[in-house]
Amino acid sequence: IFFPKRCLCNMEPQNLTRISEFLLLGLSEDPELQPLLFGMFMSMYLVTIAGNLLIILAVISNPHMHTPMYFFLSNLSLADIGFTSSTVPKVLMNIHSHQRDISYAGCLIQLAFLYLFGYLDSLLLMVMACDRFVAICHPLHYPVIMNPRLCGVLVLVSIFISFFDSQLHCIMVSQLMFCTDVEIPSFFCDSPQLFSFACSDTSTNTILIYLVGAIFGGVPISGILFSYTRIVPSILRVPSSGGKSKAFVICGSHLSVVCLFYGTAAGVYLSSAVSHPVRMGAVASVMFTVVTPMLNPFIYSLRNTDIKRALQRLLSRMS
């Protein structure tokens, strides 16, 4: 990618070379903290991979869990693995090698996978809310409506839309011109941060990226809110206490994951629009990209008896 020799910044025009890499400052530059950070990221990454893989294997190995709800849950676990894998391996590599650089191409690739799996998470959460809406509000028609073909189509459409969203962000970032020595105050590449370091005029791109975020983020949130405005009254009308408790457990796990995902996402992306301490933004990024995918398997399995039994059978077979 070639850049003009001069760009307009808040400083005097200066000669530019071709941008070949960025610097990721990470959580801390203190050498004494690097082993602690490496152990923290490594342990959380291994727990995330193991937990989500166990959910996927439990769903696949148990025929009683071949239902739409667990089909979407296994796809959510797969998306969580991809989401955390788009950032953490690079963090571990940089800490281990005592380097902080990431190539320009590597930054775009990381950005593409981050938005691909991140938005796929968001869409799958909406699909899971719609699945619960049909199961609770229209139980007699549930097997007909949520048939295997429709479930497969919903996942494929979610993947296609997520890919489209990730490519939009990559295209917008690839059009930017950067000054030399770009230092990103985080441990991964992200669109809002890259816009703030561009030398070219980014007002149009900034408006466009927030418009895209509002559209692509507003649709899943609206779908989830609409589903639960119908689900909660239907649960309250269930005559048996056992049916109510089971419905509240399933919906409560899903709502916990929704609040955790969108709450940490708001902390990351709203901090880029307002005055915010750099380190606090980095901590919010850890919560969003690492902690949330790690906690999802525990949230879904702690109070779900079906998943507990499937995991027990799976672990007994493995042992």
Score class of each variant (00 low, 15 high):
Q167G: 09
L150M: 06
R313L: 07
C137A: 05
I1G: 14
D30I: 09
T229W: 15
L76N: 03
F288Y: 11
A129M: 05
Y119F: 09
V157T: 08
I1M: 15
V91G: 01
Q167W: 12
C170K: 02
V290Y: 01
D201G: 00
F117V: 08
G152S: 01
A310Q: 03
I235N: 01
N296D: 13
Y269P: 04
R279E: 14
S174P: 05
D165A: 15
M146A: 11
I209F: 14
S241C: 10
V59M: 01
I95H: 02
N15R: 14
L176I: 00
A282D: 07
S43F: 11
S241I: 09
D30P: 01
L36S: 07
K90G: 12
D201A: 01
F216S: 09
E29K: 15
G218N: 04
V173F: 03
A50E: 08
P143Q: 02
P63C: 02
V290E: 02
L33R: 09
Y228L: 07
H98G: 03
L24S: 03
M126E: 03
Q34V: 05
F117E: 00
A198G: 02
S77F: 02
T204A: 12
V47G: 01
S253F: 02
T289A: 07
E32S: 13
R100F: 10
M126H: 01
D190V: 04
L211C: 10
E32R: 11
G223K: 09
S162Y: 08
Y300T: 01
V249W: 02
V291S: 01
P192Y: 00
F83Y: 04
V134D: 00
V257D: 02
S234L: 00
P35K: 07
L156I: 10
S74E: 08
L25K: 10
S103A: 03
S61I: 04
S241L: 14
I49K: 00
L236S: 09
N205H: 09
F83P: 06
C179T: 15
P239F: 03
I209A: 06
T229Y: 15
F195M: 11
Y210S: 13
A247C: 07
R309L: 14
T289Q: 09
F298Y: 13
R313E: 12
M287Y: 11
P35A: 05
N10T: 07
D101F: 14
L57G: 04
G218H: 06
N94H: 03
Q167C: 09
C199F: 08
F160C: 11
I307Q: 02
N304S: 06
L270T: 12
K90H: 15
P143W: 05
V278K: 14
S227A: 09
F113S: 08
H276K: 12
R313T: 14
F195D: 03
C179G: 06
V232C: 07
N75K: 08
N15W: 15
F288C: 07
Q175M: 11
Y119P: 04
D30E: 12
D306R: 08
Y228Q: 00
S186N: 11
L73T: 04
I207L: 15
D165N: 13
F2V: 11
V278E: 13
R303F: 14
A50V: 13
N52F: 00
S272Q: 14
G152H: 05
M318G: 09
H96V: 10
L37V: 06
S20H: 12
A198P: 04
S43T: 14
F197Q: 04
T87S: 04
